[in-house]
Amino acid sequence: MTRHVRCLLLAWMLIASSGIGLTTTAIAQEGEDLRFIVVSHGQASDPFWSVVQRGTDAAATDLGVTVEYQAPTTYNMVEMSQLIDAAVASEPDGLVVSIPDAEALSPAIEGAVAAGIPVVSMNSGSDVAAELGVLVHVGQTEYEAGFGGGERMAEAGVTNAICLIQEAGNAGLEARCAGFTDAMTEAGGTVEQLVIDLNNPTEGQQRIEAAFTASDDVNGIMALGPTGALPALQAIEAAGRTGEVQIATFDLSPEVLTAIQDGTMLFAIDQQQFMQGYLPIVLLKLYVTNANTIANPILMTGPGFVTAENVDQVIELTEEGTR
């Protein structure tokens, strides 16, 4: 849906809610035939999810279908399952969901499958997608990505690391941390967990600084996303320990890439989330119009690594909002 239509709709809603009332023509089924709904757990303010949304928008434009994007206002699985219920009741041609908490979301997802709506999962939920009746999962397997990150970090000489969780309760992040911890432990290192609030970077920075001032041994930080990596970078700089404390992160943002370019960050684990937005729409369209399915249960978009070697090229693409 174009920005203009959205703005118009907003105006209509405000007028209607003021009780004046206004006759409107239905705009829901203007133009395209196929209508897909994406329900993710990612807030729009998170740069990561903004790229996913760019992916769904791009797919909608390229394929000539309608895609609507919904997400709860906070990380709240009850609200998310209610959004899925609403999406199902609106009878879309296909549904894309992320599954960060299978237990809480499974009734809603099974409801969608039972209603005959094709469902593709993306980002989180690779381990449960198949048993819920989802066609295919598009994403990165988190444990393996974390393990790969741990190996690289140990290679770089890190022995005592902090695993920085920016969204307490997300099972995908916990799996990354577990993989990272296992790889580090295998290499003879130790890992401590630190939870920060992604909505409050300043407070996060203070907590990270406190964590490695409290213990001189810490010489590495693995952030589980840019919202954790940025305060971590600032904390290292503020404490004057650039170079002593190595840092790497999951997922990209412009600041992360600049840090890799400058050499203040080792690497970023890239799950190429643009494809997690784009590909499910392609797969759903092919399924609905051509009955095509993918044979693998998981279509892996990551892990890829962004290092000093390939960072320049990735930066160009990031500026377009697609990496």
Binding site: I27, R35, A44, Y69, Q70, T73, A89
Partner: peptide
């Protein structure tokens, strides 16, 4: 309003504005 914007096809970005 919370559920209605799903049916109206408005992106979730706008919910808090409403």
């Amino acid at each position: 309003v919370r559920q209605g914007i799903v049916y109206a096809g408005v992106d979730a970005d706008w919910f808090q504005v409403f």
